[in-house]
């Protein structure tokens, strides 16, 4: 590997941009494909699939063995609300490899006793969220049930490119939320991005089951091809 390639991998990773290194195993030839260049690459179908799955593997192209090594950023999960569901959601998300942050201005909720080993920010969303640099590799869930906290958080997330946004509440609750967000100037297309009621429909009742439903929905959004996740 050329030192320039290694440096480029490190630069892209530090910026949380995915990169794929394509190595011809037969002759050692190597090239680096940045995320922004995948669409116009001759191997774009394979590259896109590998990136979506976060999976590195050997493929055969015209009799040559090519190793596609995917360097994808660690996915982040930002949870608004240090509530009961979040106590189940945070460890589950961590076990799935997410870098988890919980935000709740109510310090009685956002306490280390309730959330051992989780990054906690006991601030309002307008203070807590900008430094988190929410990007495409971020899943964002608002579960406080309190519009004073959830709404400004969702407004922030909708301005970003996060791959998943979910909000707790029934259809009725979400309908009222949509009215409030529209009043704030949010477009219909943006409101459509919010998964609500949150989570896959698996009949979840307990906080742990709801956490499973949420992580299942987030996983589907991350891994399934775009066309089938509508």
């Amino acid at each position: 590997m050329k030192l320039a390639t290694l440096s480029a991998i490190n630069t892209e990773r530090a910026a949380r941009r995915p990169v794929i290194v394509v190595t011809d195993i037969g002759n050692g030839e190597q090239r680096l494909v940045r995320a922004a260049d995948i669409a116009r690459d001759p191997l774009h179908i394979e590259l896109e699939r590998h990136l979506r799955m976060g999976k590195s593997s050997v493929i055969e192209v015209e009799g040559r063995e090519l190793f596609l090594n995917v360097y994808a950023p660690t996915a982040k999960l930002v949870i608004i609300g240090a509530v009961h569901i979040s106590q189940a959601l945070a460890p589950l998300a961590r076990s799935l490899g997410y870098d988890v942050t919980v935000v709740d201005p109510r310090s009685a909720f956002a306490s280390p006793e309730r959330f051992p080993d989780v990054r906690l920010i006991a601030e309002w969303p307008d203070v807590a969220l900008p430094p988190l640099n929410i990007d495409h590799y971020t899943a964002f869930v608002a579960v406080t049930h309190d519009p004073k906290i959830d709404d400004p958080a969702l407004l922030h997330a909708l301005e970003r490119d996060c791959f998943y946004i979910g909000a707790l509440g029934s259809r009725n609750t979400h309908g009222q939320r949509a009215v409030r967000l529209r009043a704030e100037g949010v477009s219909e297309a943006s409101i459509e991005r919010i998964h609500a009621p949150i989570g896959l429909e698996i009949g979840a009742i307990s906080p742990s089951e709801i956490a499973v439903a949420i992580m299942a929905e987030i996983t589907a959004q991350l891994r399934l091809p775009k066309a089938s996740t509508a």
Partner: peptide, 14 residues
């Protein structure tokens, strides 16, 4: 770099 695994290999490709 691990480029391929078969069976229950402890570290994934990549």
């Amino acid at each position: 770099t691990v480029i391929e695994t078969w069976g229950s290999a402890p570290r994934p490709a990549g």
